[in-house]
Write a protein that binds this DNA or RNA. Structure first.
Lengths: 339, 339
DNA sequence: TTGTAGGCGTTATCAC
DNA sequence: GTGATAACGCCTACAA
């Protein structure tokens, strides 16, 4: 059947006022345990469900967290989401998830929609081409917390959850150098996303540290789309001096690159050593297995959710923190090893 | 700032009634174009946003679709989600997404929470161990459409979106046979999920068609978790008669199996041919590249969303359809080829 | 400890 | 074409 039952129905049935029912159901302190249990049981039996709209309208909060990610169907993003969902769910929060498909326009629309939906907080990982950030100030202006994860932007009053991308980039690069690579290439994502810019900086730092000169030949900026591997091949052919070590800013693309290089009869790691980024599960499934930087995506999601929920509930409040940085880890596998 | 502005504010400002404002904003037919534009412009300038809670409360619908998937961080599921999100977003629907983590208990809790949240429709892909389905009848009882995708269960009044798993299983198997395999093994997921049972049936059918006798040795039921590859190796050692062709019900696990077999110095495809299922992107990144069944996950997501939204809007209504079956496709790559 | 009553912001049903 | 007014279901001062 489908009769909606309300607190009024319960009140009538139990000969108490709606207010008492409401308070009992919300475990209000000033209600006798007796009536409380009575009400709760009656509600149970009657199959009562709160009407969230009414409750939200009254309380002016939705118990809902909005999430915007660039792509849903990405191993890394879905890992973050899994972490966010886990925590949000445990805390009784709903998640409204949308994807920007790497487009700032779509991201704006998503932000707008989520704002209208009355989310209590927003967790964002930015699209590739996002370059203005006004669409988030609506939220901050009315006190709705906005938290950036991974693809972040340093907005006033917004926390970010990241790893130390510069250090990670440095570590990856230094590893290649220690394996004997003399002529490095860094395949980066769009440099207006800070994570990529920082990894590049780490790459440069490591080169400098080991007295290697950085030139344009050492960098290829890419959209990291599998269809763009051709650019890598072109780049390799255009520059002189054979590249013997490549640091790719993303495992999936690294995998595509390796595959393509193998087709051209390069031997990995003998001719060229490769290291990726993320520790995607494909790393272990490829041949050779792919060295990488382990990236705690799930943890980042968990922390993001805990951050906003703690803030909303007035518990441990991470949000005043400007930035929370998690630990990364170099994972050495076959693609960068000497034997 | 942060002043919430309501239709009353606009009404006052424009010297009309709140009702007129509401109607104008909703483009109600019986409002003069003149006042309509006047109101709309004023709303724009004032930065007015509808309060969804109030609107939902009044309209008794939420414009929100609930989604339950087994895991967020799975390539296939996130592909389905991407399709769902695309359509839902275009149609102005929000998505509340939750994951069951392959547990019926969690699935029940998710279903409950989504019910409470007042979703207008539910899209579900079942957990591994779900064996009762009462938690969905709450929805159907009150007329909320429930649609199953991929991991389906034939509930009364619920549509399902699937592929013809039996035919697909048959096609994969027959392909191995045509490549000369004489001694087949099917690595299946839990057989209480119909998709796996059907693929197994297809496997059996193909064997029968080619006059091969099916015995227990031809089947390994697995949880398809990478950590379970050991079971495959054990199975291979226990049975007599060398397996020369394996049909694995999932690409990720197929990849893990291949990796493990290679460690044991089996040559793929020379010694053992392997075909997976899903056409995960790893198929092309592995060595050898993995033959598989292409599975239109994105399309399934799109159709699922269109199904429920069409139904809710009273447009094209797919939901009376008991089951919608999409086309699959055999993709032959190196892992099952003779040269 | 419990009840009364007003408000949350919209939509919808009547009138006019 | 527009305006009152009553829902929608819940929460919460304020009273009792």
């Amino acid at each position: 059947m489908g009769k909606k039952i309300t607190i009024y129905d319960l009140a009538e049935q139990l000969h108490v006022s709606p207010a008492t029912v409401s308070r009992s159901l919300n475990n209000h302190p000033s209600i006798s345990t007796e009536t409380k249990t009575k009400v709760v049981r009656a509600a149970q039996e009657a199959g009562y469900k709160v009407n969230k709209f009414a409750a939200n309208l009254s309380k002016q909060k939705s118990n809902t967290i909005g999430v915007i990610v660039p792509k849903l169907n990405s191993a890394f993003m879905s890992t973050i989401l899994a972490g966010v969902e886990k925590i949000a769910n445990e805390a009784g929060y709903n998640l409204i998830i949308s994807q920007s498909l790497e487009s700032m326009e779509k991201e704006k629309m998503n932000a707008h929609a989520l704002f209208q939906s009355g989310v209590d907080a927003l967790i964002v990982s930015l699209a590739y081409d996002t370059s203005t950030y006004d669409h988030f100030s609506n939220f901050t202006k009315v006190g709705i917390p906005v938290l950036f994860v991974d693809r972040v932007y340093p907005m006033e009053n917004c926390s970010t959850i990241v790893i130390d991308n510069q250090q990670a980039g440095h570590d990856a690069t230094e590893h290649l150098i220690q394996q004997g690579c003399k002529n490095l290439l860094h395949v980066s994502g769009h440099l207006n996303r800070s994570i990529y810019a920082e990894r590049l900086q780490g790459f440069k730092n490591a080169m400098a540290k080991h007295h290697m000169e950085f030139t344009d030949a050492n960098l290829l900026e890419s959209d990291l789309d599998p269809n763009s591997v051709g650019e890598l091949i072109n780049h390799l052919q255009q520059i002189n001096g054979a590249i013997d070590g490549i640091f790719v800013s993303n495992d999936r693309f690294a995998a595509s690159c390796i595959k393509e290089l193998q087709k051209l009869h390069y031997k990995i790691p003998e001719d060229i050593k490769v290291i990726g980024f993320n520790n995607d599960s494909i790393c272990e499934l490829m041949t050779p297995t792919l060295s990488t930087i382990d990236y705690p995506g799930y943890q980042m999601g968990v922390l993001a959710a805990q951050g906003v929920i703690g803030h909303l509930n007035g518990n441990i409040d991470l949000l005043p923190a400007n930035s929370i940085s998690l630990r990364h880890r170099l994972v050495v596998r076959e693609s960068s090893s000497n034997d």
